[in-house]
Structures are given as C-alpha cells and as structure tokens.
C-alpha cells in the first residue's frame, strides 16, 4: 500500500497534509496519534470513502481513483465505528459480504464467526448486539475474504480485556501464519506496541514519524515514551496541517 503526498482539508480547517508512507507485505503497521490527529480521515481516504484534495493511494499497484475494484479486491477493513443493519443477523451480513467474492466457499462464513467467537449469536439481529459483539462482527466481516491487507480503525473499541487479548493474538497469528498485512489505527499506544512492527505517528494531520519499531526505539525507551516525545517535539516546532 502506498500513499503519495495525500492531503485533505475539511471546512473546519482540520484534515491531513502531505502524508506519504507505504505498508509492505507482512507488516503490522500501527498508525498512532491522539484523538483528532487525522487517523480515521487517512483510513477513509485509503478505502475510498473520502476523496483526497490531492495525492494518490495505490493498493497492490492499482490506483484507487482509477481501478477501485481491483484495488479493494484483497482488502478487508473496519472504518470508524462498527455499525450494521439492525434488522439483519450476523449471518446475513456475512453472506451479503461474501457475494462480492465468488470464489469464497460458504463454509468461510462459519469459519470467521468461529474465529471471532460469534457462532452462538449468528442468527440474532445485529440491533441487539453489544458494542463488543458488533466489533467482533466487524472483524469477521473484514477477515471474511482472506484479504492480504486488513485495515482496522480502533479495532479493540468496546472490547473487554479478554476480547482485546484475543484480537491481538488473532492479528499476530494471521500476520505470522498467512502473511496478512495489517494497517491498524489506534490511540492506545501500549496496545499497538504489543503487535506492530512498524509505526507512523500522526499529529495534527501531519505524519511526523514513520519507521520500524526496533529501529526507532533502539531498545532505549518504550513506544509510549517515544510517541510522547515525538509529539512534544512536534508541538514545540508548531507543526500543523
């Protein structure tokens, strides 16, 4: 996945500016930043929900603006909040999503439901799901098509401690065993530090740092300390999008 000088400015003056980075095969890339830093905006641009004012996004070599279907074919994502049709069941949602991937066997729906622990609730309407269950369904939906790139926006939102650990383990396992690439945004630095091998730090719409975790930290500090120090430096330098 490549982002080339992507900029987007909203009417309220917020947005992102000149963001460029790439995510390579097998990476677990953590997009870190405080609330309002522009993480969700960036993920929405990457998935085509928002058009950038300038810049370009390429997924698997395909420009998003020119070959959207090919670009998104191997992408699974959760963007912003896990919202669903209240009158449809988890099974309905996944069956509808599966229609976009003709090669996908029907048994895959049960597989992902099992993976996220929703099998017992698959015939219940999403309207009665708790936030954590919706988050699990969103993850099942993102992983359904065996995507090579999974984009997750705050994937542990609403999950209890046990759920957070399960999701973290699942992400690690998919990256290790299937070579799945992850781009995960979160403001929970500690959480992300446990799984990400690369991070990008967003502050006020600018990507102020991007690199492999071990190279950035060099064993001298924790990711939390590093991010805080980078944001502090950016604040002092007055970097704003």
């Amino acid at each position: 996945m490549q982002l080339e000088q992507v900029s987007k400015r909203f009417a309220n003056g917020r947005g992102v500016r000149d963001v460029s980075f790439e995510v390579r095969q097998g990476d677990i890339f953590g997009l870190i930043g405080p609330n309002g830093a522009g993480k969700t905006t960036l993920l929405k641009i990457i998935t085509g929900l928002i058009r950038p004012d300038q810049g370009d996004v390429r997924l698997f070599g395909h420009r998003l603006t020119e070959r959207f279907e090919q670009a998104m074919e191997q992408v699974g994502c959760i963007i912003e909040t896990a919202d669903f049709y209240e009158y449809l069941t988890a099974w309905d949602h996944l069956r509808m999503a599966a229609r976009f991937y003709p090669q996908l066997p029907k048994s895959r729906i049960d597989e992902v439901l099992e993976l996220v622990g929703l099998t017992a609730y698959k015939k219940e309407q999403a309207g009665i799901y708790s936030l954590g269950m919706k988050q699990r369904l969103a993850l099942a939906s993102a992983l359904l098509s065996h995507p090579r790139l999974v984009i997750l926006d705050e994937p542990t939102n609403g999950l209890d401690i046990e759920g957070m650990v399960e999701i973290r383990d699942l992400i690690g396992r998919l990256a290790r065993e299937q070579g799945t690439t992850f781009l995960i945004s979160s403001h929970m630095i500690h959480d992300l530090g446990l799984i990400a091998n690369r991070v990008g730090i967003l502050h006020n719409g600018l990507l102020i740092q991007d690199g492999y975790v071990d190279q950035l930290l060099q064993g001298k500090m924790t990711l939390e300390q590093y991010v805080v120090s980078q944001i502090q430096t950016a604040k002092e330098a007055g970097n704003y999008a």
Partner: peptide, 9 residues
C-alpha cells in the same frame, strides 16, 4: 460504507 468498502465502484 459497508458496501462501499467492498470491491465495487
């Protein structure tokens, strides 16, 4: 957005 992030223009 549920359908718009799938491979469909």
């Amino acid at each position: 957005k549920l359908s718009l992030v799938r491979p469909i223009t």
